[in-house]
Design a protein around this nucleic acid. Structure first.
Lengths: 340, 340
DNA sequence: TCTGGCACTCAAAGCTGTCGAGTGCCAAGC
DNA sequence: GCTTGGCACTCGACAGCTTTGAGTGCCAGA
């Protein structure tokens, strides 16, 4: 006996009903809500089969069936129908994001929008420095021997860092340093700056050498080693909607969401491109985050990928709706970034 | 019959026990845990009095007593004994904050530290722009007719904004604009920039007038109107420790904590100075945040106040411990800011 | 003013029985 | 050979009941 079409239909119906009602679904109610064309007894047989194959399970005898992670996986891979955003929703996306005035604003608005659309927790990574290149470096003198280094990237990020020099640096030297580093580094991918920075030190005049050495150390630290990824988060209040799904306690989830490293891992490897990624339950192997699914994708101007964004929710989530929202928002954010 | 010393002792004991055990405290257990020198019957009389005066109440007949907000108020105002941080905790504060490399880092570390020390939700406001003055303004050309304006304040904040000009601006003009705005605005309190900005426009040469007008609009918008306050938050997971206190649902609290405006209101008016503020229950009149108390204070270098920081928790919180933590952290952050 | 004693109250916890949604299995039907 | 209606069975949820025990208020006596 094999997996016929009807059985797939049954699985789809189970997932859809369960996501909607949050209650185990039984054979009778399934028949009454979906035009499956067969009786509940037949459905029961199908359900027995699906259970044997590991797609659904019974929380306890004499309860309805609930999809397993394997069941959700099959659902998202083969069964779910695309559920595009309504026109009103799409208009809202555009209107809301169009008002953004700078990168911070874009990210901030995006994450809130995503949380609102999906009624779940939204996560947006700022454009990754490793995916950006230098657009401008600025040195501002704060005090004798102390400068502030400001870096602007092509993705719109602005990073700053205080640099303490062993000896004072004259205004003139500041100007020289600035033009030297700008000449050398502007347009360079951040991942490729280390050798350029080394060259800067090597080529600098004996007089400027000490200052340039200090500066280069900080440049390396800030731009490369520190791997400064930033993340915005919104919609944690939505977790309470599904408190029951999380075996009662939100603690582990809230804790995980406060860890930048965990969030980055959740969003997944940027390198996997602009494709949409879905992890279900333990597929993300983060303790405390079994029981959650993640729908994420990359975004970036003109087909490139500079960062990730996504949604975190209970495994029992409305996958088609979430997928549509994530995809639409990512696309539009990419467009906006392309304009800048 | 009046409020004698013993009755105050009884109230103090009730608050302390309740905070510790999270359960209504009865006369017997009170006598057994504290050396009050009288019998439980006497305590019962005292409790009856305290209840009549509104300091404590019974959740239901035949249950122990629980402090009311009025009771907590009396406790924090007159009864609580200072409970300084342990030496180890103080060392941890210093060590952890000393490693910060810039303002973002300071704020980030502070908020996490505070959350960890108090095991509650911590909130830290970035130095308020309205309390800062301009240290440097930078104009960077991104594209024809499009500049990025970067502002650095004396408090270490760096704000940026994209400016679109109707016509292109030559490199030379960019330099002129930059020195004009810097000459006029550096050192000026942000609250006082509007007239200076107006003067800039009035005094500018006919040739530069259009560009300067555009620039001044954005300056006004960014620096003044937008009132760009930033806030860092940490420790939301700690809310789950007290889920029961919040009538079961964390929703309203999580929602409130996502609203910047609400957080700012919670931290209180900066103008009230560096004194420690405590609001108990409905004293902060924010819907959904009755049931929470806030301990907050201002911070800033050299006795000034540039921002606020604090802790949000259930009314039934360890006030003495929280107060000590907030005060210590605020002091040390202020010191660090003074160094920069 | 304090104390011990006593009757009273009531939430929490445990126990029982009923209800009903859901199941598996089977013999009959298409 | 799949599908179907029927039937006995299971078991969580719920409501109602009792018991338990911590806690109270009041009172008479020290």
């Amino acid at each position: 006996m094999s997996m016929g079409d009807r059985r797939l239909d049954v699985l789809r119906a189970i997932v859809e009903d369960y996501v909607l009602t949050q209650e185990p679904v039984g054979s009778k109610s399934l028949v009454s809500r979906h035009a499956l064309g067969v009786s509940s007894a037949t459905i029961r047989n199908d359900m027995a089969f699906l259970e044997e194959e590991g797609y659904i399970r019974q929380p306890h005898t004499s309860a309805g069936r609930v999809p397993t992670n394997k069941g959700y996986r099959l659902f998202v891979d083969r069964l779910s129908k695309i559920k595009p955003l309504t026109a009103a929703e799409r208009r809202a996306v555009h209107r809301f994001l169009d008002e953004a005035v700078d990168l911070n604003d874009v990210v901030h608005r995006t994450v809130r929008l995503l949380a609102q659309l999906t009624r779940q927790v939204a996560v947006v990574q700022y454009p990754s420095l490793s995916r950006s290149s230098v657009r401008h470096l600025e040195l501002v003198r704060l005090a004798p021997g102390r400068l502030m280094l400001v870096m602007i990237t092509d993705t719109g990020r602005v990073e700053q860092r205080i640099v303490d020099f062993p000896a004072d640096v004259s205004d003139e030297d500041v100007l020289t340093l600035r033009s030297l580093v700008n000449d050398k580094l502007v347009g360079v991918r951040l991942t490729e700056t280390p050798m350029e920075i080394q060259a800067l030190v090597d080529e600098s005049s004996p007089q400027l050498r000490p200052a340039m050495t200090t500066l280069s150390t900080v440049l390396l630290e800030t731009l490369v080693e520190r791997g400064e990824e930033r993340i915005a988060l919104a919609g944690t209040a939505n977790l309470t909607r599904h408190a029951l799904d999380f075996s009662g306690s939100l603690r582990p989830i809230l804790e995980a969401l406060e860890e930048e490293v965990v969030l980055l891992k959740l969003l997944g490897e940027i390198d996997s491109g602009a494709t949409l990624r879905i992890t279900i339950g333990e597929e993300n192997d983060i303790v405390g985050l079994d029981g959650t699914s993640v729908v994420s994708t990359g975004y970036g101007p003109a087909g490139s990928v500079v960062g990730g964004l996504g949604v975190v929710g209970p495994t029992r989530m409305d996958y088609p709706g979430t997928i549509a929202a994530v995809r639409t928002v990512a696309r539009y954010v990419s467009e906006i970034l392309a304009q800048n």
